[in-house]
Structures are given as structure tokens and as C-alpha cells.
Design a protein around this nucleic acid. Structure first.
Length: 698
DNA sequence: GTTAGGG
DNA sequence: CCCTAAC
């Protein structure tokens, strides 16, 4: 029995009660109660269970429509009955109680005659006809779209999984229908597509604090549910609680993005009433500039922590732990004040896909639209009865030829957000929210990847496509792609700082690699900016070059967790199951520091210091000549000296960059020769310390 | 944490 | 500038 299998595989969130053989002519309501410790299980698990149960015990094919009622802390599943006539009047309803509310142990189904559907949710606009189960997925989706008021059209014979995902969108965008994953597998008891509980948690945008975060654990059992609605409008905040798996809280109107942070009083990023507009129209001030850079593997945060007095010792004190942290901090401080590209690395989970059980399906470079990645490889956790493979879409397929897919979570596309460092965390959060909603709000398309290759032929069966049960779990992947026609990526069209090429065009272009992004940031943007040091050069070397002159007022609050974590992870959101971002290699490496060529003044100061202190005492050199220049570490000075020596030795024609006065180069060679000699002497005569030598020099 | 040196 | 071995 399927249920049994599920239990064996750890899917024990629900206990199936003895089910009364309900007369199909009556409306039934099954109430599932979850154990508290299984609260992380998502609605999809429930639905899968229900679907299986229905198939196994009732012999009925679930109808791919379900609704969730977060407000009531319940999830409902409406299933059609094979007998259309009966089904029409007597839908089977499966209800899941909120784990926090319901008793843990009991789980039962009850036959409820004449259970008023309307009490559960407004079905009129969300339900598909009871015979919808017999429709081709595309038809169903179309119908769903139609009912939902969406223009979304699906390709014919689209995989039902896709259907489910897409329709979920409708569910949020309007009062549209929603397809349950469990129902996707119609007619086959063995087939099940369910969300992995753990990953399921990574799917949503938290509604708890009205903030966009990825990885809300309890998605459907929110106090407020957008799904319980009477009209087409969905309230954003409530809706968010439901953002499970493809259901994005997006409303065509009346969406108000509210963050919990009240620290932002600025009006620069106010929330427009219209979500789409909100996204498109960011304040003229240009503070919010959000660009999506496609699909990369992760988000990076390039934080900038300025305003902290600097000295080497302090630097060390502040970042005593690791070299990396030290480096990272320095890096953060180093970022130019003018334009800052913040890569939000909310978490690996945000960016990382979720794919199959064991792996991550990488997003191919050519998968341009892949903003969100959803992959669903074979589900290892489920006992498979592997056979050949078959298209799950077809109810007529052999019973034994089904592919089991497990969609653990999906990935939020990489966002490119530019925001002034004077902006508050609150505004930043809102920016992220806008970016996310912008990308997702336009609707989603689902793409499929097999072995990294995009599957474009929707008419082929899974078997023909090569998707079989024996596939490696990471072979198959799904991508959730923003709908190019609806998404309004241009968040700040009026932003004076936004150049045409900065406009998000995520949907159409290939996802840039991390390097590409970086290049874009550094070359296209950062480097184009005036040298921040330029105005400070005169004060060199004693001046505090690093204190971003142009932002004297800046009072960027330091983020405890560092700016890299800025976004995504709200400090106290225990609920957010966010995978540590440091998992990925990319996110592991901090953003490379911006290149800051040494100025002649700096070179002079360096040469002078080295002449006095000698080589090999870079920390002292740093303290002596660059003590208040945050962005120059002793390693930098050492490196610069190295390059200076090299530069001095090559012909002027070979030199690049800002020319260093020959006299300085001469001094470099002289000092280098001298100290090299001293070093040699030191090695030969250990009794004479380098320090004493330097004193002699002084 | 610093230094030295390769990349 | 990054990385890291070596100290």
C-alpha cells in the first residue's frame, strides 16, 4: 500500500485512519492531523497522501484541484469522484488540520454529508469542473487560467507537474485554481509527487513578518490565508503564508508590501498599491534599483560596512576568527560608496535549487529563463518499483511505468539589487521583496531539464524523452521561469541611475555566471565610477581615505551578521529554514575586493615607509604609512611593493596603469636592493636583528 | 596574526 | 588582489 510505503520511508506525518467506505454520493471530509514534530511537512505531502489514499482505498481519481485554507489552519483537498455526476454534487474534501491546533495523535476522516464547500473556500472561481481530471493538462491549465483570469496558456500535453506549478500561480494571483501535487498522479497509486518536507520549507516567502524571505517552514498553516477568499483579490500578507511551492503571493492589485521593519521611514521605497507597479515604479530617487541577473547559482552580498574607525589592531580585533572573515570584512569596507551592488545571499537555499533528492540540478547556461530552478529528480526516498518509465501524464500508461519525482524546493532567481548604503535595512528588505515579486509576479513558466538539457518537446512522453525511473535523481530538473510577458523586471524605470542596459531582462537572457556578474559589477559599474580616493589623495597618507567622503552622513547600520547575510535571513525567524549559504562554492568565496590602484601618493608613502622599515615588516609599514587607510592591508602593501619592484625593472613601455615617477621607481630599486642586502646580512649574522638594522637606518 | 610567494 | 603555506 502506498501509504505504508510512505510511512516506511519516513513519510509519517500523517496517520491514515480507518477510512469508512464512504458512499460516493456523499460529500466527505477527511481530516488529517499532523504530529507536531511533523509540522514541517508541507501541504503537498498531505495531498500526496490524500491522493494515494483516495486511489487506493476509494478507487477514485483525485481531481487536480485543491485549496488550502491557511486562515483556518487547514488544508483542503477536493477530489473528484469518478462518477462525474456524483462528483459534482458530492466532492470529496480532505482537510488537514493545523498541527498546532489539532491533536497530534488523531487523524481521521469523517464523512460529512452536504459539507458546504463554500464554507471552506470560494470554490466558484477556483474549482475546475469535476470532469477536469480527464482533461489534458493543457486544457486544464487553460481552464484554470481562464477561471483565474489569467491569460496564461500552457502548451499542449504539458507535463502535469508543470500544470500544477503553473496553476498554483493562478491561485495566488487571483482566486484561481490550484492543483495539488498529489493529484497530479492520477490513477496510479504508486505514483506520487510530493514535496520533500525539508525542502518544502524553503519554498515560501514568509508571511509571518511580512517580509520576503525564502524558506518559510509552515506555509499553509498560516493564520491568515490568502486562499480563503471571496473574491479575486488576495491579500498579500496573508497570501505569503501560503507561498508554497510555486504559489506566489501575487496579486494584481491591492498588494501591499509591508515589512516588519519600521526602521525605514524614507519614502523612497514606498509600496505602491499595485504590486506590479510597485515593482516597476520605484522611487525616482533611484535608491532602489533592482536588477535581476539571471540565474546564477547564488546571491552574493557585497556589504559595506563603513564608518568604522580603522587601524590594524582594531581590524584584527574585530575579525579575529578567521582569515576569511578578516578578508571579508576588509572587503566589505572596501566597497565604494558610490554604487554598491548588493548580491543578496540570503541563503544557499534561496539560490540553490532544490532538486532532487540528492542533487542539485545545475542550471544550464543556455537556460536563460531559469530564474527559479525547480528540479525534481527521481525520488529515492520512496520505494520505487522501478520499471521502465512512462509518461505520468497519461492515465493510460502502464501502471508500473511511472516516474517518481520529488521536488524539494525551488530556487529563487538571482537578484541584482542596487541600493544606496544609506538605505535602511528595512528598505533593503522591501527591495528584495519587490525584486522577488517582480520576478515571480508575472507568472511562471516551467521548464524541464534532462541531463542539463532543456526539454522543449512537450509532446513527447517521459519515456521518449528519456525520463525513466532509473534515471539519476539529478538528471531531471525543473525550472521555474518568470513569465517574460508578465513579469515586470524593470523596477525602477525612473531611476536616474539606471542605465538602459541595467534594466532587468532576466527572462530572456542567459544566466550570467558568477564571474560575469562580478565583471559587470566591477567593470561596468564600479570601475566606471570616479576613484573614491581621488578627492582624498591630497591628504594622503595620513588621511582617512576610506571614509567615503561622499557619504559623510552615512549611518549604515551594521548588520550583525554581516552584510552578506543581509537579506535574507531575518534574525529571528526561526521558521525560515534557510540552508546555509556557505554551502555553495560560489557563495563561499567572498566578493572580490574592488580593484583600487595605488596612487602616486600612496606609492610615495609606501616607498618612504619601506625605505625606513625595510621589506618584510609589512605590518609596520602599514601602521606607519597606511594606518588609517582601511582598504590597504599590509598584504596589499607587500604586494604593491612586489609590483613596484617589478615595474621598476621593466621598461617604461611595458608599464601599465598610472605611471609612477621614475624617481620613485629608482628609490624602490634602491631600497629593495638595500634591504635585500640587509636581509642577507641578517641571515648571515643572526645576532644583528632586523630591527636594529632598521634603527640604524633611521 | 604575519610573512612570503605563487597565482 | 587572492590564496595559502609557513611561521
Amino acid at each position: 500500500m502506498v501509504l505504508q510505503k510512505m510511512l516506511e520511508n519516513g513519510f509519517n506525518g500523517y496517520q491514515m485512519p480507518p477510512t469508512p467506505r464512504a458512499a460516493r454520493s456523499s460529500r466527505r471530509r477527511c481530516i488529517f492531523q499532523r504530529k507536531t514534530d511533523d509540522h514541517q511537512l508541507g501541504a503537498f505531502d498531505l495531498l500526496a497522501t490524500v491522493a494515494d489514499k483516495l486511489v487506493m482505498e476509494e478507487g477514485i481519481s483525485p481531481k487536480p484541484v485543491d485549496t488550502f485554507s491557511g486562515k483556518e489552519q487547514q488544508a483542503f483537498v477536493e477530489d473528484s469522484i469518478t462518477d462525474r455526476e456524483q462528483a459534482k454534487d458530492n466532492p470529496l474534501i480532505v482537510k488537514s488540520c493545523d498541527p498546532d491546533v489539532c491533536d497530534q495523535s488523531s487523524l481521521f476522516t469523517e464523512q460529512v454529508s452536504e459539507a458546504p464547500l463554500s464554507n471552506i473556500c470560494s470554490h466558484e472561481q477556483t474549482s475546475l469542473p469535476n470532469d477536469a481530471c480527464s482533461w489534458p493538462a493543457s486544457v486544464m491549465a487553460s481552464e484554470c487560467s481562464r477561471k483565474a483570469g489569467s491569460v496564461e496558456q500552457l502548451d499542449d500535453d504539458e507535463c502535469k507537474l508543470r500544470l500544477g506549478i503553473i496553476t498554483k500561480k493562478h491561485d495566488v494571483q487571483s482566486s484561481g485554481c490550484r492543483l495539488s501535487a498529489g493529484c497530479i498522479l492520477e490513477g496510479e497509486s504508486e505514483t506520487q509527487i510530493k514535496m520533500d518536507p525539508k525542502n518544502y520549507r524553503n519554498l515560501s516567502i514568509s508571511g509571518k513578518d511580512d517580509m520576503c524571505s525564502l524558506g518559510c517552514p509552515e506555509n499553509w498553516d498560516r493564520k491568515q490565508s490568502a486562499l480563503v477568499r471571496s473574491a479575486n483579490s488576495v491579500k498579500f500578507p496573508s497570501c505569503r503564508g501560503h507561498m508554497s511551492c510555486g504559489s506566489f503571493p501575487f496579486n494584481s492589485e491591492g498588494v501591499k508590501i509591508v515589512t516588519r521593519d519600521n526602521d525605514e521611514n524614507s519614502s523612497r521605497c514606498t509600496q505602491p498599491r499595485n504590486a506590479n507597479k510597485a515593482i516597476r515604479r520605484l522611487p525616482r530617487s533611484g535608491d532602489c534599483r533592482i536588477r535581476k541577473s539571471l540565474a546564477s547559482k547564488h546571491w552574493k552580498a557585497t556589504p559595506n560596512l563603513k564608518g568604522e574607525g580603522y587601524n590594524a589592531n582594531k581590524e584584527r580585533r574585530n575579525f579575529p576568527n578567521t582569515k576569511n572573515s578578516y578578508k571579508r570584512q576588509i572587503s566589505q569596507r572596501d566597497y565604494p560608496f558610490k554604487k554598491r551592488k548588493l548580491y543578496y545571499c540570503s541563503s544557499a537555499s534561496n539560490s540553490d535549487v532544490l532538486v532532487s533528492s540528492d542533487g542539485i540540478s545545475s542550471l544550464p547556461e543556455n537556460d536563460s529563463k531559469g530564474a527559479a530552478l525547480l528540479s525534481g529528480p527521481a525520488l529515492p526516498g520512496v520505494n520505487a518499483t522501478p520499471t521502465s518509465a512512462a509518461g505520468e501524464c497519461s492515465p493510460f500508461q502502464s501502471r508500473n511505468s511511472h516516474v517518481k519525482l520529488n521536488i524539494k524546493s525551488f530556487r529563487v532567481p538571482e537578484l541584482f539589487i542596487e541600493i544606496p548604503e544609506t538605505a535602511t535595512v528595512g528598505s533593503l528588505k522591501r527591495s528584495v521583496m519587490k525584486a522577488v515579486t517582480t520576478i515571480l509576479g508575472g507568472g511562471l513558466h516551467v521548464g524541464m531539464l534532462l541531463q542539463g538539457k532543456r526539454i522543449r518537446d512537450d509532446t513527447r512522453t517521459l519515456l521518449q524523452t528519456g525520463i525513466s525511473h532509473g534515471n539519476k535523481s539529478d538528471a531531471l530538473g525543473f525550472t521555474l521561469e518568470p513569465n517574460p510577458t508578465q513579469a515586470s523586471p524593470t523596477l525602477c524605470p525612473e531611476d536616474p541611475f539606471q542605465h538602459p542596459h541595467d534594466s532587468p531582462q532576466p527572462l530572456a537572457r542567459s544566466p550570467p555566471t558568477a564571474n560575469e556578474v562580478q565583471d559587470a559589477v566591477e567593470q561596468g559599474n564600479l570601475d566606471a565610477l570616479p576613484d573614491p580616493l581621488g578627492s582624498n589623495i591630497r591628504n594622503f597618507p595620513e588621511s582617512n581615505n576610506d571614509s567615503a567622503p561622499s557619504t559623510p552622513h552615512m549611518s549604515l547600520e551594521k548588520t550583525p551578521t554581516g552584510s552578506r547575510a543581509l537579506v535574507a535571513v531575518p534574525e529571528k525567524r526561526e521558521a525560515l529554514a534557510i540552508v546555509p549559504m556557505c554551502k555553495s562554492k560560489q557563495s563561499d568565496s567572498a566578493q572580490r575586493r574592488m580593484r583600487r590602484p595605488f596612487t602616486v601618493s600612496e606609492v610615495e608613502a609606501l616607498v618612504q615607509a619601506v625605505e625606513k622599515l625595510g621589506t618584510g615588516r609589512w605590518r609596520d609599514v602599514k601602521l606607519r604609512a597606511f594606518d588609517n587607510v582601511k582598504h590597504r592591508t599590509y598584504v596589499d602593501l607587500k604586494d604593491k611593493w612586489k609590483t613596484l619592484v617589478h615595474t621598476a625593472r621593466i621598461s617604461p613601455q611595458q608599464r601599465r596603469g598610472e605611471p609612477v615617477p621614475q624617481d620613485l621607481l629608482d628609490r624602490v630599486l634602491t631600497a629593495h636592493a638595500y634591504w635585500s642586502e640587509q636581509q642577507t646580512k641578517y641571515q648571515l649574522k643572526p645576532q644583528r636583528s632586523v630591527k636594529s638594522l632598521s634603527k640604524e637606518v633611521n
